[in-house]
């Protein structure tokens, strides 16, 4: 598990270490030099600081074994610090992977219908207050495209992202990639919607509940419902898979490690905040002012 998680990260780190370290506030100014040989650049800067420091205190000393020994010690400490950062980054990557796995299990295993009544329950979950459902729900949960709307919105609002975007290669959230993923997800979403509309449009043909149909065979009304619900169940399963696909694409393809973490934090925070706002409102009584006039009078 650890080994598999590390490999891609290592690659990632080799490709992006310079960028990453800039984010950590460590070194890096000039990308041209890093491209040629990143390590050398870091060493040069470290060397430079060390020299400056030592120059003031030990000016006049001869070149000696002692000085070389100090230089090696310094290097070891510095490398140790870098390695620590590298390990932290691996740990972060593992956490991201773990988080994705949790979502995979949630959408693809935990929240799929098992009993017949689960189908209705998942479409209109009782655990989600009506205001939350009305604000963002699609087949009972977040729209897959809303996950991408969230990424885009966060990207627009994050000052750190926009400031770093000009200095490094393009925006840290790749808008072109994001649009690509957005298109793909929207198409899939529309297909699922179409399937659901088709099921609903046709179900009336099978769910007529006429006394005749009910008498034909025992429990046949239930049989019709089962048949229709099985179709809806398939739609729900697809919708859940698409939600996970949107998350996975965003985290693995579009966002950097840092932005993926920010995204997960915001995703959880926003879900929670929306729930907090919606929850107390479910107790409101819906009142209606019936007209004074009767239907007959004008």
């Amino acid at each position: 598990m650890k080994g598999t998680a590390r490999r891609p990260i290592l690659n990632y780190f080799v490709e992006n270490d310079l960028e990453e370290q800039e984010k950590d506030g460590m070194v890096m100014r000039c990308t041209e030099r890093e491209d040629a040989d990143g390590t050398t650049t870091i060493v040069e800067r470290v060397h430079c600081t060390t020299q400056c420091k030592h120059e003031t205190t030990k000016r006049g000393e001869d070149i000696s074994g002692e000085k070389y020994y100090q230089w090696r010690q310094e290097q070891k400490t510095r490398a140790g610090r870098l390695e620590k950062k590298l390990r932290a980054s691996w740990e972060l990557e593992e956490l991201i992977e773990e988080q994705l796995n949790r979502f995979r299990a949630h959408y693809n295993n935990a929240m799929v219908p098992i009993q017949l009544k689960d189908v209705a329950e998942l479409l209109m979950p009782k655990w989600t207050p009506p205001h939350e459902l009305a604000a963002l729900s699609w087949l009972g949960d977040w729209r897959p495209s809303a996950i991408l709307d969230l990424v885009r919105g966060l990207n627009r609002s994050s000052p750190s992202v926009s400031s770093s975007s000009s200095s490094v290669s393009g925006s840290s959230v790749n808008e072109r990639l994001l649009s690509q993923v957005m298109n793909e997800i929207r198409i899939d979403e529309a297909i699922i919607e179409e399937e659901m509309a088709e099921v609903q449009a046709k179900c009336v043909l099978h769910l007529r509940f006429t006394p005749l149909i009910k008498k034909k065979s025992r429990g046949s009304a239930l049989g019709f419902i089962q048949e229709e619900f099985r179709k809806i169940e398939q739609v729900i399963v697809k919708a859940q898979q698409l939600r996970f696909k949107a998350l996975e694409l965003v985290v693995k393809k579009v966002l950097s490690q840092h932005d993926a973490v920010e995204f997960f934090v915001a995703f959880a925070g926003i879900q929670d905040a929306i729930h907090q706002v919606a929850e107390p409102q479910k107790l409101r009584k819906v009142m209606v002012n019936m007209p004074a006039k009767s239907l007959g009078s004008s």
Partner: peptide, 14 residues
Amino acid sequence: QAGFMGRVAENWVA
């Protein structure tokens, strides 16, 4: 719905 999400997200970081 997309507008709602966009609006919330754009204010979220701040």
